[in-house]
Design a protein around this nucleic acid. Structure first.
Lengths: 337, 337
DNA sequence: ATGAAAGCGCTAACAA
DNA sequence: TTGTTAGCGCTTTCAT
């Protein structure tokens, strides 16, 4: 490897400024006692040498890196992309920096966790769509405060922030019934996906209170194509319910296109609702009724937990909390009769 | 701040294993000479203590952090979101780790650059949609090899990898003419956006070779709404060209919906093409002709440049290169007569 | 307000 | 193959 460029050190600056090395350190750290004069000399020399303080020794000395890991996977869910940006921005405000870790499919998490520990990150955000019990325990084993974003998971070291998935499903159930539907369908995500399962549970339980016990379920893949295929299967068998709830907007778009192609009219023949309120939901071609989660509130809640866990006055990291952020319904053309 | 948990050090492991501290270091670094026996004792003790090597002192000693910064802004362009994931994955393969830096609007870049330097990152990927001359010079000033992704920028320290924007514009021009269009429109991105400007340039120059010198231009904001509004202005004034080229797919979707709402038929009355080939371009409601760039090739090219700059045998970082990745056209329903 | 000195947890040169 | 030793560039007592 190339012998890397040698950066000037505080000692170099000290020599040029004619002060001690510790004076340089003090000049660059506020809340320390340095004279006006010394400070001036230091900054002048620093500028001349192009000096910028090296953060690594500081991490070493202080036993805290101010690094926060975000663990992502290549999910089609663009929800996580905006979350990463929001986290990064919010954490920078408090002097933290985001270190990104990608896990591929399978048990790749185990390959990544040791590195998380080796970078001595102060906290972890899991932006994984599925966190198995084993995964949660693996997180706990490295004993770093962790918050699972948008996926329930909880043990001594792992907290989670989720939107009220079941509540959202219930809102959709109420609306469908109010609009006169009497038969119901649901297109879910992959197996083991808590968010999808919860949305179905809330939907189903609320329908039961209205006296409807049957829900025709199908499974998609959280993408347009999955929603399209699942719906096409319904139209092919002429088993289209009065109202169709899709576990996310992408699948709802696929469902809409499949219904229209097969000659069904929305909302006249079929009501359709999605979940997420992605930008495309408002587009003229779709104008989709959907459940809106409050991204900002979710990120804020996660950050609050992390800060609490990372600071002194904070809670003992050894007990995770579960925060549920409320959702609301945005009714648009696909359910408006 | 909470006094952070003290991790076990190699010295702790050494003591427990009854070997020297350097033996522990050697056991954890391959390519060093350690006996089977010593290694066993070390790993046993390490496991017992829950030891994982600390990377920070290593960075300190070696004068290389193996950290790569990715600088992002809150662009609506989801193209960057997938790129971040691809970069992260590819860099991890070679033992690098991505450190994320978000810049807000305005001159916020200046606030971020000193931190980049302080983390001693080995290289920088700029995923900013606009890199002004001043920004490029600011990058150069910290003398860390930088590659600007999808936005031209170049000086001694800054390389760039771009798709062949002008070439894509030319492909669209050829197709429009082939399909019989005789008047042309273009909806671009924000001021100073090179990608948009280049797409227009290629479009315009190729049209000129076909004998068409007029292009009716409008400006959007790279989002659905901007494309919708710009197109609505055209339909309102009844100044709709035979063929409309949008600088990205999002605006093309807006344009399609605006045209349809105003009673224009696509492709019968108007041809429409976009740029990016986002997933929604293939959806039934749009089926949009668009220019496809090769994400993978672009990321690979950027990584290749970075690796070259980061390694010993590599090129002197003091001369940036500009790599142009070819594009192709995906013709779909919006131009097929 | 300032300097001297110790030490964070590693790696690497050197000696044995 | 192994142990000893000297730093990497900072922060932080402790004197002055």
């Amino acid at each position: 490897m190339k012998s890397p460029r040698k950066y000037p050190s505080s000692t170099d600056v000290a020599r040029l400024a004619g002060v001690s090395q510790s004076a340089v350190s003090r000049a660059f750290n506020k809340g320390t006692s340095v004279s006006e004069e010394t400070s001036r000399k230091v900054f002048e020399a620093a500028k001349q040498l192009g000096y910028s303080p090296n953060f690594l020794p500081r991490m070493l000395r202080k036993h805290r890196s101010d690094l926060v890991a975000i663990v992502i996977s290549d999910s089609a869910n663009s929800f996580y992309a905006v979350a990463v940006d929001a986290f990064s921005k919010a954490l920078q405000e408090t002097g933290h920096q985001v270190l990104l870790f990608s896990v591929g499919g399978g048990n790749a998490l185990d390959g990544v966790l040791p590195r998380l520990a080796s970078y001595r990150v102060d906290a972890i955000v899991s932006a994984l769509p599925v966190v198995t019990r084993e995964a949660a325990e693996a997180f706990a084993r490295i004993r770093i405060p962790t918050v699972s974003f948008n996926t329930p998971a909880r043990n001594q070291w792992v907290s989670s922030v989720c939107s009220d998935n079941a509540g959202g499903g219930a809102l959709v159930a109420d609306l469908f019934v109010l609009r006169g539907a009497r038969s119901f369908g649901f297109i879910g995500g992959m197996r083991g996906d808590y968010a999808s399962d919860e949305r179905l549970r809330g939907f189903r339980e609320r329908l039961a209170t209205h006296g409807f016990d049957e829900v025709q379920t199908a499974r998609g893949d959280y993408a347009y194509e999955g929603g399209f295929a699942a719906t096409q299967a319904m139209t092919g068998q002429r088993l289209v319910p009065d109202a169709l709830f899709c576990a996310n907007d992408m699948m709802a778009f696929g469902a809409l296109d499949a219904l229209r192609r097969a000659g069904w009219r929305v909302p006249d023949d079929v009501l359709v609702a999605g979940y997420d309120d992605v930008p495309a939901a408002t587009w003229g071609s779709f104008d989709l009724t959907t459940v809106v989660h409050d991204h900002q509130a979710m990120v804020a809640a996660a950050i609050a937990i992390l800060h609490d866990r990372m600071t002194d006055s904070g809670t003992d990291p050894a007990d995770g909390v579960t925060t549920t952020v409320p959702v609301r319904l945005a009714e648009r053309a696909t359910t408006r009769r």
